[in-house]
Design a binder for these strands. Structure first.
Length: 299
DNA sequence: GTGTGGA
DNA sequence: TCCACACAACGCTCA
DNA sequence: TGAGCG
């Protein structure tokens, strides 16, 4: 059985403004594989496919078709709402990654948990999702406020650009808690953020009810089956941006998510390495963290 | 992006 | 043989 | 039950 992704239509234009081709996307994933695979390994994958490039709205795909090659790993999960089994792709190696990319999947969206422990996420994620009236400096302020709260709890968080207009802050959970606990923790964090930044943040999910210049702090991404763009995933956005892990010292006004692209990220990785490693670490002690928050330090 | 079915 | 066409999500939340 | 949302 040969493990070899066949690449079709490499000359097809995916980013017309930049004249970036499908072949260049495939090359990006071939080179980024050592960095991105740890965050995709053994996770069910939601595919967002845009086989006609980023100007096309594309479609989501969860169920691997019957025609999936036998060397591609898949994993069946019951979809509660339909009662049907969904056979998810699982990408554990570079050839599988290239197979998925060749389907026109620009953006990789893995679950927050792995197939051997589906109910227990590896991390909590805070999704900072600005309106188009916010500046990226607003997004930075929200990320720094989350960082401040995490500092007060004595726990470490990891920040990345989403590659689009927002940022993601990950907190390692080490498969020690379930999705309900992850969600409750994220909701509490989001609540604290809106208390500290009431002018620019909201927990209101409905777009029509949100004030125009408010950032939605989305804690509901911490549910089974929910996905976000993976660290090091390309995004179907102008400039061919990449969701890029950051040092906290870089998270300051003036930073732009457009600075990190499939063309230039490798220079950065050569210098800084994988800043997201800790996300897969042993995970926080939830009780300890919550105690620190409710009992202010005495001195 | 691919598999199909009818012209 | 060619091409038009079908098909490729889920789950929560709120009204 | 259905529309909205990510």
């Amino acid at each position: 059985m040969k493990k070899k992704a066949e690449i079709t239509h490499p000359e097809k234009i995916y980013w017309p403004d930049e004249h970036i081709t499908k072949g260049e996307l495939i090359e990006y994933y071939r080179n980024i594989a050592p960095y991105i695979l740890p965050y995709m390994k053994n996770r069910p994958l939601s595919l967002r496919r845009q086989p006609n490039g980023i100007k096309d709205e594309g479609f989501f795909q969860k169920d691997a078709s019957d025609s999936v090659p036998e060397w591609i790993k898949t994993f069946e999960i019951l979809a509660e709402s339909t009662g049907k089994m969904v056979n998810y792709h699982v990408v554990n190696d570079v050839e599988s990654l290239l197979y998925i990319a060749n389907l026109g999947c620009i953006e990789m969206n893995p679950w927050n948990s792995t197939i051997n422990k589906l109910e227990n996420p590896d991390w909590v994620v805070m999704d900072i999702d600005p309106s188009d009236k916010n500046t990226f400096d607003d997004v930075i302020d929200v990320a720094l406020t989350i960082k401040q709260i995490l500092d007060e709890m004595g726990i470490e968080g990891f920040c990345k650009t989403s590659g689009a207009s927002g940022m993601h802050v990950y907190i390692p959970f080490g498969k020690k808690y379930d999705y309900d606990q992850a969600r409750d923790f994220a909701e509490m964090l989001a609540q604290l953020v809106t208390e500290r930044l009431p002018k620019i943040t909201t927990l209101e999910r409905s777009l029509s009810k949100r004030k125009k210049n408010q950032i939605y702090v989305d804690y509901l991404q911490n549910r089974i089956g929910q996905t976000l763009a993976c660290a090091y995933s390309a995004r179907p956005k102008p400039g061919a941006t990449v969701s890029t892990p950051l040092e906290w010292s870089e998270v300051q006004h003036g930073l732009s998510p457009k600075d990190f692209t499939i063309k230039n990220i490798f220079d950065r990785l050569d210098k800084k390495g994988d800043l997201f490693k800790g996300v897969l670490g042993k995970g926080i002690n939830l009780n300890k963290a919550l105690q620190k928050l409710s009992v202010p330090a005495q001195d």
